[in-house]
Structures are given as C-alpha cells and as structure tokens.
Design a protein around this nucleic acid. Sequence first.
DNA 1: ACTCGTTTCGAACGAACGTTCGAATTATCT
DNA 2: AGATAATTCGAACGTTCGTTCGAAACGAGT
Lengths: 217, 217
Amino acid sequence: MATVSTTARISAQRRGTASPPATRFDRRLGEILDHATDVFCKKGYEGASMRDLSRASGMSLAGLYYYFQSKERLLFLIQKHTFTTIVERLKARLEDVSDPEGRVRIFIFNHLEYFLSNQAAMKVLSHEDDALKNGSASEVAAIKREYYRICVGLLDELKRERGLQFSTRIAVLSLFGMMNWIYTWHNPKVDADADELARQMSDLFLRGVMNGAKTRR
Amino acid sequence: MATVSTTARISAQRRGTASPPATRFDRRLGEILDHATDVFCKKGYEGASMRDLSRASGMSLAGLYYYFQSKERLLFLIQKHTFTTIVERLKARLEDVSDPEGRVRIFIFNHLEYFLSNQAAMKVLSHEDDALKNGSASEVAAIKREYYRICVGLLDELKRERGLQFSTRIAVLSLFGMMNWIYTWHNPKVDADADELARQMSDLFLRGVMNGAKTRR
DNA sequence: ACTCGTTTCGAACGAACGTTCGAATTATCT
DNA sequence: AGATAATTCGAACGTTCGTTCGAAACGAGT
C-alpha cells in the first residue's frame, strides 16, 4: 500500500530548478503539489475543496489519495518542502559572506527572491500558518523557529560588530512583517524585481536599525 | 421583515468604548458581531461554521439569520465597522498635530493601539482580506484605499519638508507589513504595549526612511 | 501473450455545510 | 388583559465536503 510510505517516499527536490526526481511516483506527486499550491493560494486551505484540487491537477478525486493520506497531509507536504528549500538556499548563500551587514542583506535577498519566484507557495506558507493540527504543525513550526533563529543570529552579529542597541526581537519580527506582507501587494507588472526590492528593503531596515542607539526595551 | 433593513439599521458605534447603542436590535447585533469576530479569528472565515457562531453567541442557528442575511454579509459588517472606526480615530488624532514627523508617528501609534486592543477584529480584517465577493469586497476596498492614501499623504509631506528621496509606495507597504504582521506574533504577556511598540517601530521606520537619500526607483 | 505490481477511476459513504420556514416565545403598548 | 410587533427556535432543505472501496487500466519484464 503506497499511502503508508508517502512520507518516506518523497525525495529531495521537485520544481523545475534542477535534476528530474528519481521515481515516477515522486515526479507525479510533485506535479500534484504544484497544482495544489496554486489552488490553496487562490482559495485558501479551508476554501479549497478536494474537488478543486482534482480539477486543477487533472486527476480524479480518488486518484489523489494514492499520493497522500489526507488534505491536511497535503498542506503539510507543501509547507515543509517550501520552508526546507528556502532554509537550504539561505545556508548555502551565507557561506560566501562573512561581513555582518552583507549577511543580513543576503538574508533579505534570499527571502524576497524565493518569495517572488514562488509566490503561491509562499502565500500558502504565510497565510495558512496555523491551519495544521498538532503533529504536522509542530514539525513546520520547528523549521520556522530555526529560520527565525538564524535571523536573530545575523542581527546579533551586526549589533556586536557595530555596538548597536535595539530589541532584536522587534527588529526581526518587523523585518519578517515587511517581507511577508509582499504577498498582499506585489504586482510583477508594476513593482520592482527581487534584486531591487531587496536593496530597498535592506536600506530601509538597516538604516532603521543602525544610528541612534536609543531604542532599547 | 427585518433582514431587509439590516443594512440601514446598523447605527454608529458598538463596542464597550462609549454610549450604549440606540436600539435593542443594534445592541444584540453588536454582541453577535463581537462573538463572530472571535470565532473568525480563531478558525478563519471559511473554517468557521454557522454552527460555531451559533454556539459562541448562545443564539440558535436560525436566530442568527434574523440579524444578517448571510455569513458573508456578517464578515462584511465586521470588516466595515472595524475599518471605519480606525479611520475615524486617525482623522480625529491627526487634527491635533501639524509637524510631519509627528503626524507619521500618530499614524503608526493609532494603527498599533487599535490593533492591539482589537486583536481579533484586526486579524479578521488583515487575514480575511479577499474572502468577500464583488459588491462587499469593493466597499471594504474603498475604505482601505482611503486609509492607504492618507498614509501616502503623510509620507509625502515628510519627504517635501526634509527633501528626502525614497519610493513612497515601497515605504508605505513596508510599514503596513511591519504593523499588520503583529497579529502573528504579539503576546501581551511578553511584548511591550502599544505606546512602546509604536515608539520602537516609528524609530525603526523613520530612521530607515530619512538620512541617505539614495533609495530611489 | 501472460503476469504482476503500480496507478487511476466511478460511485458511493456519512457528516457537515449555509440557509429557510412556520411556529413558538417574548417584549411593547394600549 | 389582550393585541401587535419583534425576536427566537427546532427541524428540515438541498448541496457539498473529505474520504473509501473495488474494480478497471496501465507499465515493465518475461
């Protein structure tokens, strides 16, 4: 029975970025996840029905259940894959830079670039934050916490190097707010691309955090 | 038939802030809206069932329909009231201040203070942004646009006064991001209150927007 | 051509959904 | 107290929901 092994079966990467997935199963599952991401993005997790997903992916309603055990599990697979990928890329990119300010800029750029080229997935990740129940929720929450902690680390480096004083917590959460809010307004035809946007937000944020060392909890 | 007049019947203000509403009908509707707000906040608009709302408000399922015509109309009433109130308060507060920087600080404080003392309502407003259909959606969108334009106006004043250069659009939307994201993290037991938070975010944002006049689209 | 494991599907399940209706209850006024 | 209007409710409506089942169709190896 395949559904039992779904969790273990899903392999490393999916999207069009690189190497075709190993098994036929993984490839097909990947396609379904991509279509489901679009539907969840448009109608929300609760608002999207299994029949919507069936229509979007061109597979029968029953056929979908060969690839995952439940609708919730499907959301989990999407969120976990998206979040894991963004963290992986971030780590790789951070290896090349040691200057604290540059590392913060990398963080922002990495986030925005992935956000803009995977808007649907990132909206699902941001918007359906608390849609998962106990088990799955905590697994995604763990990745999220790791991601958060990386950002805290980067800002603390910066603080130490420049002798700054500000509440790291507020700064990090404000930064996430700025970046994640994008999904509500970004229009590719009007707004700048990831490079330019990352530059502008980095300038705004970094200038805001530096200078006058007066903001202290 | 009362449901027909529901739209016209709802009068000025509801919550515990001041004067008790005129009619019994308005008062009762107000209570239902408050309970519904909490439920929508916890389970999301799509995720909350009319039976959930019935349970929360202590009124029978059928009884609810005496006060509004549909679940969607209910969401609309909540969003419109919340948004209208926040804009009204802002306008009143802005009358006292003429200094551009001070006016921006008022905007931020007003937003955060209302956000924190009406967390549930504001989460519903932020999170269920595109849950409404055609007619209702555009009415809420109109208020939102007005609110947005006020903020743009304040920033343009500031730019002119100090000869700054930055993309107003990006600045405004980043600011909204910072502020609206609060509903995902703010914990009254850990985090500062509205005054302190508004100060910190204002400092962060204003420092970010001033100084080096290099950020330009 | 036959077999066996993998993949897909039509049809149906019970549960929950938003909404409606007519009757019952309650408040208001003479 | 009785009459009229405002409010509340139990019960049901037709639909749609997530999920399951057994059988049909397909793929690769002999």
